[in-house]
């Protein structure tokens, strides 16, 4: 076991930082750019120390223009670089939508492979931090709808690093959403209790060097027989806690990659359990849960014993003071589990 990778206890920020550091060391074509990512190391400290180590022409601050950040990143790809731009909050990715949707996502297709955009767009996302309307959103459904994009959401430090390395190495554009509520510790939805730090969680043992968690592969967090719970990001931890408290034998699947989706793992699970609960923070209508629900219905129709349940954010903008009424937390998920088991 002498060549076992040396691990270190890391929270999600440190794991992401480590992924960037490892990849920048391996590949001189990787550049990191975004608002406040350089000298300061990012508003969440995800890029701390990278500029000092790798230099100003590889890690640099940008003007505050999201369309510009992604636009220049596409141009950098044309030169042969592999940019890892950061959008400070997922809520601020919209100005860059044209460059992401019309350019990065379609470049390979429209040029029949002459030009490609191996960009990894990192962006903190999700709620639960009293971030109000513009520091809480989960816009993954906008991106999963776009042909040519991959969308990834890690839920723990080990996966965050391994998935980010895979995303950076991937030759297609990847939207990499980092649930900021769990940057420092797994959050189970009990906002009135203190949060346990990552160090108490097995996934905080992160190899210091290079390793990959493959894109397009889900993880079975908890095997079970009675119901399949599909979650990603922070919701994985909320679901795990509810399942434990309620004593239901649920199979909890952390999707990790939304596109391409690991349909095999999902279908095998639902065919076994006959029941499915889908949970995400994003608003309900046309959210990614709708796609999941449709796919489960298409692939597992004859095995379903109850209607598929969706536990999601309400179809409203993300409120500030009413955050915990909005949040798809333990109470709402618990009720959904009861409903699906009663049918």
């Amino acid at each position: 076991m002498s060549d076992a990778p040396e691990t270190k206890t890391m929270n999600m920020i440190q794991a992401i930082n480590s992924a960037l550091d490892v990849m920048m060391g391996r590949d001189q074509d990787i550049v990191v750019l975004g608002e406040d990512v350089g000298y300061f190391g990012g508003v969440f400290k995800a890029t701390e120390g990278l500029q000092a180590k790798h230099g100003k022409t590889r890690v640099f601050d940008t003007p505050i223009t999201e369309c510009g950040i992604i636009g220049v990143a596409v141009g950098m790809c044309t030169y042969g670089l592999r940019p890892v731009p950061e959008i400070q909050f997922a809520d601020y990715i919209y100005p860059a939508l044209d460059q992401i949707v019309s350019e990065a996502a379609r470049l390979r297709y429209r040029s029949a492979g002459e030009y490609t955009a191996p960009i990894t767009v990192r962006s903190p996302f999700g709620g639960g931090i009293f971030g109000g309307q513009t520091h809480s959103q989960s816009p993954e459904g906008i991106f999963t709808h776009v042909a040519g994009l991959k969308t990834v959401v890690p839920s723990n430090p080990y996966d965050a690093k391994g998935l980010l390395i895979s995303a950076i190495e991937d030759n297609d554009p990847v939207i990499f959403f980092e649930p900021k509520r769990i940057y420092n510790g797994p959050f189970d939805g009990h906002y009135d209790r203190p949060v346990t730090p990552w160090s108490k969680h097995p996934t905080s043992a992160v190899p210091q060097g290079y390793y990959k968690v493959p894109l397009g592969k889900a993880a079975i967090v908890r095997p079970g027989e009675d119901v399949t719970v599909l979650a990603y990001g922070t919701m994985v931890h909320v679901a795990a806690a509810v399942i434990e408290n309620q004593g239901v034998d649920a199979e909890l699947i952390d999707l990790r990659t939304l596109v391409p989706l690991d349909m095999e793992t999902i279908a095998a699970s639902v065919k076994k359990t006959g029941r499915c609960v889908i949970v995400h923070e994003a608003t309900k209508t046309s959210g990614f849960g709708a796609e999941l629900s449709a796919l489960v219905q298409e692939h597992c129709f004859h095995h379903l014993e109850a209607p598929i349940q969706r536990v999601t954010g309400w179809d409203t903008p993300y409120p500030h003071s009413l955050e915990w009424a909005y949040y798809p937390g333990p109470v709402r998920l618990g009720e959904a589990l009861k409903r699906v088991m009663q049918d």
Partner: peptide, 13 residues
């Protein structure tokens, strides 16, 4: 859209 892309290429070069 090609405008910032050209700038990005130039920055990379």
């Amino acid at each position: 859209t090609q405008y910032p892309q050209a700038v990005g290429f130039a920055m990379a070069s």
